[in-house]
């Protein structure tokens, strides 16, 4: 097959698409859906600008993923972290710590922070640096990014006692 009908669930929205099989998930997000918050850096898995979260929060490089193989998958981009247009605590921490200069690496950085904090609510600096190894920043020198991740960990809302769908925080 050269084209394939697929359904992606992007940031909670269902997208039915016909994709050329040689299109990467990154190209489909940016060029076919106009979701340009996911960035193209190297195209070869080294910089992390194209990071998205798959299913339950696994970070992957969308530049090395064929969209046609992702049928039925849930995908979160940086825009999907915000709650109804309001930045979430991770994005706010990056703003507060001025961990952004040109901003090109930021979507990948905040998503990697989300995937780290989902499994480790109180990471050490070393764990933060190990987790961010797949994300290159040419501007900040990383110090402020590590600080922002620490702040994001401190300001993380307590885990909901109920399932996410019925949780009042989300419902409000």
């Amino acid at each position: 097959m050269k084209n394939r009908d697929i359904t992606l669930h992007i940031n909670g929205e269902e997208c039915r698409l016909n994709v050329a099989v040689n299109r990467t998930l990154l190209e489909v997000l940016r060029d076919q859906l106009g979701m340009t918050e996911t960035k193209y850096g190297c195209g070869t898995g080294e910089c992390g600008a194209c990071t998205v979260l798959l299913e339950d929060g696994k970070a992957i490089n969308s530049c090395l993923t064929l969209a046609a193989t992702m049928d039925g998958k849930r995908i979160t981009t940086a825009a999907g972290l915000s709650d109804f247009g309001r930045v979430n605590h991770i994005q706010q921490a990056f703003i507060d710590e001025a961990a952004i200069q040109c901003g090109y690496c930021t979507p990948g950085m905040v998503l990697k922070t989300a995937s780290l904090l989902a499994t480790n609510r109180d990471p050490s600096d070393e764990e933060i640096r190990h987790a961010l190894e797949g994300n290159i920043c040419r501007c900040t020198g990383y110090e402020k990014i590590v600080k922002a991740v620490r702040k994001a960990a401190r300001t993380m809302p307590a885990p909901a006692a109920c399932g996410a769908e019925t949780c009042t925080e989300v419902a409000q």
């Binding site: 898995g45 970070a59 992957i60 190894e133 797949g134």
Partner: peptide
């Protein structure tokens, strides 16, 4: 080995 993203794939 590599990075989180690559290890996940």
């Amino acid at each position: 080995f590599a990075t989180v993203q690559v290890r996940n794939t």
